[in-house]
Computed example of a mutant assay.
Amino acid sequence: MFVNLRRIRKCKCVLLMTTCMFLSMVMVCWEQLDSSALGHVKSYSYRYLVNRFTAINKTFTIPREQARRFSNFHYLLDHPDKCTGKDVLLLLFVKSSPENIERRNAIRSTWGNETFIQKALGVTVKVVFALGAPVTKKGEPVWSKRSEVGFQQELAHEDRLYGDLIQQDFLDSFHNLTLKLILQFHWMHRSCAHARFLMTADDDVFVHMPNLVSYLQRMSRRGVTDFWIGRVHKGSPPIRNKSSKYYVSPEMYPWLSYPDYTAGAGYVVSSDVADKIYQATLTMNASLHIDDVFMGICANAMGVSPQEHVYFSGEGKAPYHTCIYDRMMTSHSHVEDIHDLWKAATHPRVKQRTSGLIGRLYCTVAKLALLCKPYYVDTYPCKAALL
């Protein structure tokens, strides 16, 4: 009896300690739980049950004279004749920072090589890089300091060699990404409006150009309109954590959910959608610094909705595998490995190994193992394995 009482007391002590530890963890994590899980519940409820995005459109609409300050920047580097006299399938804007010359050179020698695309794929794709003014650690233009004037001169030299830099004099920073988005749509409207598609991508994104070109050719033959594809975010809530670079204040955006939008890492729109976005930017308040969300707001105002393409990556890196390369469109976070990935993904053996009944069955099994994980991976969804 005495032994049983001791065991009961011991069990109670263990249970009490476990409960205290659990409650402590809940208290520590409550703020994160409230801002993430609960935030998504509120956002999805707003998006699917309320969905009054018309109020967002009205709030962000401003007079043209005021909106002009977001686009009325001086061109430091420009090539207005780049598309003249050419049947352009795709205008591809790569968002790049001035200092990322190695990334730009890697793109020029791999998936962004216009000569390769023309000769091997038989279409004209124009690849240009969108840049702002170089920024010092103090947040000033580099040429405002005499000792750093050479930075812009280096960019001018790079542009003389390659002729593909489109640069305006706003400061190139994360909080000016929306200005860089506006630059792209305004430049297309002015200098390459006849291009059938526009793509915007980060400079650490890998684009499987043969797959993309083949897909866009099929879409072009169908005469698609209102075409906007990428990794779609639905019912995403604004981030209220002030320590996050994606923080948006309730004063700037008081609603519980953003309109649907595609991940800014890489997406494609048809020319008619590009023109609609251009028109929207003429009367939109672009103070919201998250460029892909601002794109969603502009598109929503013009009645355009994004379409999911399972082989457009979000923030994640696609698995390295032959069966993935066969269907890949984009993959994120590639810098040092871009040359090796380009060689592997475009090698003729990819189509050889993935074709035929055996190849398709093998790839289905392989992709199920690679993509259908029990935990969240922000790359291709599980359903991509069956397509």
Rank of each mutant, 00 (worst) to 15 (best):
L357G: 00
Q217W: 02
R353Q: 14
S257A: 13
F22V: 15
A318H: 00
R222T: 02
I62C: 04
Y246G: 08
T110D: 08
N211F: 06
V26G: 06
R7T: 11
N51F: 05
K126S: 02
I56L: 07
N72P: 05
K343H: 07
N4Y: 10
A384H: 05
N176L: 05
N241I: 10
N241K: 13
T59R: 15
S109N: 15
D326S: 11
V224A: 02
D87K: 14
V41W: 11
F70Y: 15
A55W: 12
S271H: 14
L165E: 03
E336D: 14
R190G: 00
C363Q: 04
S243C: 03
I166C: 11
L121S: 05
L92V: 00
A120H: 07
L357N: 09
L368I: 13
F206G: 03
N105S: 13
G230P: 03
M295K: 12
L183V: 00
H189Y: 01
F73H: 14
L38P: 00
K119W: 01
S109E: 13
H40M: 07
N211T: 06
K12W: 14
L183M: 10
Y246L: 13
I324E: 01
F60V: 15
M25G: 09
V269N: 02
P381A: 00
D292K: 02
S144M: 12
N113S: 12
N285F: 02
R240Q: 09
L92I: 03
P238K: 08
V50Y: 11
T322V: 10
S214F: 04
V205T: 14
K137H: 14
E154I: 08
S97N: 11
